[in-house]
Amino acid sequence: MHASVEQPHGEQDVQPLLVVRDLQAYYRTSHAGVRRAIRAVDGVSFAVRRGEIYGLAGESSSGKTTLIKSIAGAIKPPLEIVGGSMEFAFLPGYGGLHRAPPAQVERIRWRHLSYIMQGSMNVLNPVRRIRCSFTDFAYPHIGGSRQQFEQQVVAHLSRVRLDPSVLSAFPHELSGGMRQRAALALATICRPGFIIADEPTTALDVVVQKEVLGMIRGIQRETGSSVLFVTHDMGVHAHITDRLAIMYAGRLVEEAATAEIFRNPLHPYTQNLIASLPRIGEDAPRAGLGGAPPNLADPPSGCRFHPRCPLAREICSREVPVMREAGAGHRVACFAVNGDDGA
């Protein structure tokens, strides 16, 4: 089932930057002898190529956050990696940040791997000026004289259209948009090869959001980084991502080029999701998806979407469909699309 992960893709058939294989990350708790496992990520495989923005979409509690926590190595109990591996091109041989020695992780953080989070307030130290945040995070990786470093920071801030005066400001003195741009500058100043963006614009106003997305795109093009872009907002995905994976209840259900997902969704969940989005200029009534999202402590057997699926058949409640190539670069996990021999 991993054969389709590293698909040769024309001129891009160099090794992908990140290969996730059959990742299983569970929240395991044990209260008074009662053991419970929330299977938040259950058998996810994908690869992020060099120089692309890879989108990840899914509703709340579909496991998006758990997946990026695992990739970023932020694994704290009760979260546990139960199986699978996450191989970075710049950290070969360990199968994930959580298995690498701390010194190695320290070396690659910010330099090779950085994050843009939803609440930039949580990234910037609230009691230190912006300048100090830059010195704390980036100076150890860049080195050189302090003056050179400051010049580099100022030059980088101008890329996100921030005035050098913000360096002397405290985070609370900046507006939400400015703060998010400062966090973006901080995340990209070391020109990391891989950026994890977790709902980076969800808290922003629509007008500011478009501006910040444009900056993320601009910096990504300039530095040639890969971005793993997570958001539930399909409008943002349509605007910025190159490829898009749809997650449902802890598993990927479909993956393709973003345009392909929007034009030709194959999985019934994706089809419903795309069809339910209202668009300006279209008056046709839209129907939502019936039923409720599954409880991951006790997920439905077989395909986790089958209780809500209009195409469900007998096999769907028995067996788990695997991701299969359904077209060039288009993978989908569904018996109705792939046929009953899907397993």
């Binding site: 629509v206 007008v207 959001q209 478009k210 997305l213 907002d233 399909m234 409008g235 943002v236 995905h237 349509a238 605007h239 910025i240 991502t241 190159d242 490829r243 393709a256 080029a257 973003t258 345009a259 392909e260 929007f262 034009r263 030709n264 194959l266 795309i274 989005l277 668009r279 300006i280 359904a326 077209g327 060039a328 670069g329 288009h330």
Partner: peptide, 22 residues
């Protein structure tokens, strides 16, 4: 209106790399 990111792909946009129809 311009800032609203609509969930649709503009014809042949920057990210239309996979237009293969299946």
């Amino acid at each position: 209106r311009e800032a609203a990111l609509l969930p649709q792909i503009a014809g042949g946009g920057a990210n239309a790399s996979g237009t293969t129809q299946v």
